[in-house]
Write a protein that binds this DNA or RNA. Structure first.
Lengths: 133, 133
DNA sequence: GTACGATCTAGAGTGCACTCGAGGTCAAGG
DNA sequence: CCTTGACCTCGAGTGCACTCTAGATCGTAC
């Protein structure tokens, strides 16, 4: 088995968009918002050329977004990575803070689930009792 | 111990807002959006008078909102309740559907948490190894 | 050399869920 | 009475995160 991942492979914006599951508009907008850890290089003609690892970066951003991190937090994290090594403690703090926010969200959802399930259970039992289910 | 809840108690919009933890603007807007299960009665002077159980209704709406239900779903549920008894099966279906959405959200968040924790752990170990923590 | 699909920029538009403001009315205290 | 604070309606404004448009350019394939 050899390494099947070609780390020198680059992507056009269209390829990256379809691989990452976002629109090309979104990629350009993310760039304008400072969400990339380094400047996106261009061809002589001006087209964007994305490095292979951009895909992993976008996957991380997607996880952060999915879990409720606002764009400002992504920007902050990108800025830390862009600034280079030496700020790992800050990156860690940011990630841990989001981890705690995630824990809070999960607890909230579990509490909501309990209330809603209880309500549903009540309807279900009433329907069963009346032979309507 | 006697019943300490006065179910005949009514609320002004300001009272209800502070008890329910929303703004008076939001209560009026919810009403305009059809999120109440019955028309809100008014004083001769035109002020809204909320029944005691409106508080419980708002608590349920809050849980639905917190767990990502769009206003359209709240409106749909309110419409079913407004329509009176006979559609309990539909109410049940709506609640169960939201319950499933909630389960999906919780799973998504748990997956995100894993990715973010792993990333944080990597930073933490690197910092520890360099004696910076 | 030309067709055509992907890409470029700048900026406007969208959807959601509020949130606020203007201008006026109501009602309890003094 | 009169003041004052809570309330009324209607409509405009806000913040977020995209999403789309217009009009131009690039680059590969005939």
């Amino acid at each position: 088995m050899e390494d099947v991942i070609d780390t020198t492979r680059t992507f056009s914006i269209g390829e990256l968009a379809s691989l990452a599951g976002v629109s090309v508009h979104t990629l350009r907008w993310y760039e304008a918002e400072g969400l990339f850890p380094r400047d996106v290089p261009r061809t002589p003609g001006g087209r964007r050329v994305y490095a292979h690892d951009t895909l992993a970066w976008l996957a991380l951003l997607a996880r952060l977004r999915e879990s409720g991190a606002p764009i400002a937090v992504l920007r902050e994290y990108a800025a830390l990575v862009r600034a280079g090594s030496g700020n790992e403690a800050e990156r860690l703090a940011l990630l841990r803070a989001h981890e705690r926010s995630l824990d809070a969200q999960i607890e909230t959802l579990i509490a909501c689930r309990q209330v809603i399930s209880a309500k549903a259970d009540a309807y279900q039992e009433a329907l069963l009792a009346r032979g309507l289910l």
